[in-house]
Simulated scan of single mutants.
Amino acid sequence: MDFDNTKPIYLQIVDFFYENILVRRWQDEERIPSVREVAVMVEVNPNTAIRAFNHLQELEVIYNKRGIGYFVSKDGYEKVLDIKRNEFKEQTLPDVFKQMRLLDVTFEEVKNLYDQHEKE
């Protein structure tokens, strides 16, 4: 995994989990890789992976069945979708709007680019 120096590694691992849940690679109530497996997979110290797991448990996206492993919560997909939509609205869109304003790009231009992107 290539890490971005501007964001803590454990949060980048959290994003890795989010993506796997959003693309339905990991389904609700399905067992996910262990802390050690994730640490090896993304090439980090197991303590960093544990930090990501703890964060996801606090958000109730995953849960631990003692002695069995970690699982995506019953409504994990919906929780991740809500988290990522809010992040998009509160963090990504304001930057996009600022760039649009600075570059004098209209919503129509963006819509056309989006439609073109979707066709590809």
Rank of each mutant, 00 (worst) to 15 (best):
Q12L: 03
V72L: 08
V80W: 15
I50W: 08
I32V: 15
Y63M: 10
I13R: 00
F88Y: 14
G69Y: 13
P94H: 01
H55W: 12
R85M: 08
F16T: 00
L81D: 09
V14L: 00
N20H: 07
V44H: 01
S34C: 06
Q27W: 03
G67W: 14
E60G: 13
E37M: 11
V14K: 02
A39E: 05
R66Q: 08
A52G: 06
N20Q: 09
A49W: 11
K74T: 15
R25Y: 07
Q99K: 13
F16G: 01
Q57D: 10
R66F: 06
I50D: 06
V44Y: 01
D95N: 02
Q27C: 02
V38N: 11
A49T: 11
E58L: 10
V38F: 07
E43K: 13
A39T: 04
F88W: 12
E30V: 09
D28G: 01
F88E: 04
V61W: 12
A52N: 07
K84G: 03
V80G: 06
D82T: 11
F71A: 11
L59P: 03
R51A: 14
D82C: 02
V38M: 14
T48M: 05
K65V: 15
E90S: 12
E30T: 02
V72C: 06
A49Q: 11
N45I: 08
P94N: 04
V35F: 01
I9H: 01
M41G: 09
A52R: 05
E29P: 00
N64R: 15
Y18K: 11
V40T: 14
A52W: 07
D15K: 06
I83S: 05
D95M: 02
K89M: 09
S34A: 10
K98W: 06
V61H: 13
E90P: 00
N45Y: 10
K89V: 11
I83Y: 10
D95W: 01
G76K: 13
V35L: 11
V42Q: 09
Q57Y: 04
D82V: 01
K74A: 14
E43P: 01
D28R: 02
D28A: 06
K65L: 14
E43D: 15
E90V: 07
V72H: 07
V96G: 01
T48G: 03
D15S: 07
I32R: 04
K65I: 15
I50L: 12
H55P: 01
V80P: 13
I21S: 06
E30D: 12
E78L: 14
Q12F: 04
T48I: 13
D28C: 09
D82P: 00
G76Y: 12
L59M: 15
V38G: 05
I21Y: 11
E90Y: 08
F17K: 05
T92A: 10
